[in-house]
Design a protein around this nucleic acid. Structure first.
Lengths: 253, 253
DNA sequence: CGATATTTTGACCCGGCTCAACCCAAGTGG
DNA sequence: CCACTTGGGTTGAGCCGGGTCAAAATATCG
């Protein structure tokens, strides 16, 4: 799983031109604060399937996801797994103020991370108030999203779960393209059936069946293997059972 | 549900003598910082079943649970409910930096809260670094606990869920009595079957059946209606499927 | 084109839900 | 003091949604 990957030294890359500069944990930092981060950071790439940090392993680095999609997992001794977070660019990976990772993080697509040595980051956190404030904000958002997810895992049917999952992707894309969620025509699926199943707490067979049903009923259509179209936004939204796009800015969602 | 309850003005009560002084969000605050909080705080009592804040309602106050047990809920339109947090003394209720509550909070037992006007609290947060640091710590712990809970809701069987729930109560009590979890002999159940079911994502019938099974198999015993004894700690712990007492200090757990 | 991985579909099964009866303790009022 | 209510809690019977196991269909890749 852990192949040798080059630890890129920050070559020409500067925080100022970073694509996630305005959304990541550093987004409130002033130019002077940023330069401290700039000096401490390093980049690292991960390939699909590669483990970013292991569950219960010492966590030496934390940082921001610059590009790609990653997921967080918790696993039971007998191998049952549950995804507990789905991370997109600008989301933060790692747990400050704890020496061991409470979960496993895995790259879903090719991933580029902006990393800091954990203890160094914690030291900066302590002195850099705007970093700490943003960290608190992001953590609160993640907590909101985690609670939405608890509702899904505890109470929603398979159909509702899949619809909720698609709504997350739709909202995420709407945000990215700066349009209303209703206007999103197509969404691409960065996850395999297995990852989707682990995310929404089902088996891959059930996920597949529910996809077929939603397709048959016209809520969604197929464009190609990794892309699908939104057939009936309202029906999807209703099936998801959400109150609206609340906590849409949270990391998990 | 919302009966008239006296809004107690801080009479003789001072933060210095507060029973949760050393664990709550204010626990890192210096004497001078504390006096600012002292001036802004007020107490309020809630009776069992009373709503502390409503889901999606404007949230004017936030604060610490001083005494009693409270729970957080998320609800679907058709009435299905999922508990998303179980709060004990020193835990924080409310969502800074958001105007509306993302969940409903309800008093389970008689509850006393130490409250702040939300915007006032946010202003203090911004100027009081130790308050913000502690807030971040507590939020990170809650997030860890929420993710443990996602694993439970997504993957554990009814039996495992109930055992996990009991382990939470055992650890919580161990902490309180300052003994090892293995040495806890009895635990009291502050929750009704219904609340337990809503917590672990089951129906009350299934909860009741699993209680009967655990009793029959000697993992637990009955002392009285609201108290039970630990019959076989190891079996309970194994059934819960936890790796150990990780994230034991988190708010939900 | 074969070889391997992923996805879909089918048949069957089982754990937990539903619906319903019953139990028990704690009021409450005559 | 007893009849009645009320609100948990327990237990049983039957069902069903989603899991399991197996096989076919479809992609992906040398």
């Amino acid at each position: 799983m852990s192949t040798i990957v080059p630890n890129l030294k920050a070559s020409g890359e500067k925080c100022e031109t970073c694509p996630i500069r305005h959304r990541a944990v550093c987004s409130y930092s002033s130019p002077s604060e940023l330069s401290e981060l700039n000096d401490a950071k390093y980049y690292r790439d991960f390939r699909p399937g590669e483990e970013i940090v292991g569950e219960q392993e010492p966590m030496t680095a934390v940082g921001s996801l610059i590009d790609g999609v990653a997921s967080l997992y918790k696993t039971l001794e007998d191998g049952r797994r549950q995804m507990v977070g789905l991370l997109f660019p600008s989301d933060f990976i790692g747990r400050p103020m704890r020496s061991h990772a409470p979960y496993e993080a895995v790259a879903v697509t090719p991933v580029r991370m902006c990393l800091f040595h954990r203890q160094k980051f914690e030291a900066i956190l302590r002195s850099n108030t705007s970093l700490e404030r943003r960290m608190l904000e992001m953590t609160l958002d993640e907590l909101d999203a985690a609670r939405d997810w608890m509702l899904l895992l505890g109470r929603k049917s398979a159909r509702e779960r899949l619809a909720s999952f698609l709504m997350i992707l739709i909202r995420r894309r709407a945000e990215l393209m700066k349009v209303n969620a209703e206007d999103v025509r197509e969404i691409d699926l960065p996850l395999t059936r297995e990852a989707i199943a682990e995310f929404i707490g089902l088996t891959i067979e059930t996920v597949s069946r529910q996809f077929s049903l939603l397709r048959k009923q016209g809520l969604i259509g197929q464009i190609d293997r990794r892309t699908l179209s939104v057939g009936d936004y309202d029906a999807l939204s209703t099936t998801a059972g959400d109150y609206g796009p609340l906590s849409s800015d949270a990391a998990i969602a």
